[in-house]
Design a binder for these strands. Structure first.
Length: 214
DNA sequence: CTCCCGATAT
DNA sequence: ATATCAGGAG
């Protein structure tokens, strides 16, 4: 079975299961969304939402961050981990957005990557979630793990994985592909203890195959 | 490659 | 105690 044929088997199952994909991160403004995605690095979105519930009461735009003391910002976001780096990056970005982007979030990969703490994954999330721009595929820890388990890719490198996926995943599904794998990764294919017996796609997965052969 | 780093499930 | 969580920079 080719990867494309494999995709055609697996994707409809996930599509039926999850339907319309929507971000789990809470926000009101694009700038707030950028902050939320930066905070989500190596942290659960549930934790990010707890933190941003308070932070976003006082932070709506870059100016609010610029006038906020960095220590205050660190206190707000401490529980998300990596808080010193994240606070520093968010502060620098608020400054950079004023100088380069007229206090607005840019809409191209190149311009977004200039911002600190914004890499390939964050860029794809922002473009896709905020403006429905599909220039790439989000490869986070879940997409990486599940794509390997299902046999779509054989790599640990997110950039290689993204390139391989783009070869056989139809462009119209780039956005949904990531969302479904992330949702399924949180629901059934949890890294710590995957629930293979309940998994809807276990016959297409390396873990699931082992289970069936026992 | 290492470092950043707290919260949580197991 | 340890692995893992919508990663990124040096």
């Amino acid at each position: 079975m080719t990867k494309k044929e494999r995709f055609d088997k697996v994707f409809p199952i996930l599509e039926k299961k999850f339907g319309k994909a929507k971000a789990a991160l809470n926000y009101e403004t694009p700038f707030q969304f950028m902050i939320a995605v930066i905070l989500s690095a190596q942290c659960t979105d549930a934790r990010v939402n707890i933190v941003t519930k308070e932070l976003f009461k006082v932070v709506k735009n870059p100016e609010d961050i610029r006038k906020m003391d960095i220590k205050t910002l660190e206190e707000y976001i401490k529980s998300t981990g990596f808080f010193r780096n994240k606070a520093k990056n968010i502060k620098l970005n608020a400054q950079m957005m004023k100088e380069k982007y007229n206090d607005k979030l840019p809409r191209t990969i190149e311009e977004l990557l200039v911002l600190l703490g914004v890499g390939r994954k964050t860029t794809n999330v922002i473009l896709g979630d905020l403006w429905n721009i599909r220039q790439g595929i989000v490869v986070d820890t879940h997409v990486k793990r599940l794509s390997n388990l299902i046999g779509f890719v054989e790599s640990d490198n997110p950039e290689i994985i993204e390139r391989e996926l783009m070869k056989f995943v139809p462009k119209k599904y780039w956005f949904e592909y990531s969302h479904y794998l992330i949702l399924h990764g949180r629901d059934k294919c949890v890294a710590r203890r995957p629930k293979c017996l309940e998994c809807e796609i276990n016959k297409y997965c390396k873990h699931g195959q082992k289970l069936i052969n026992k």
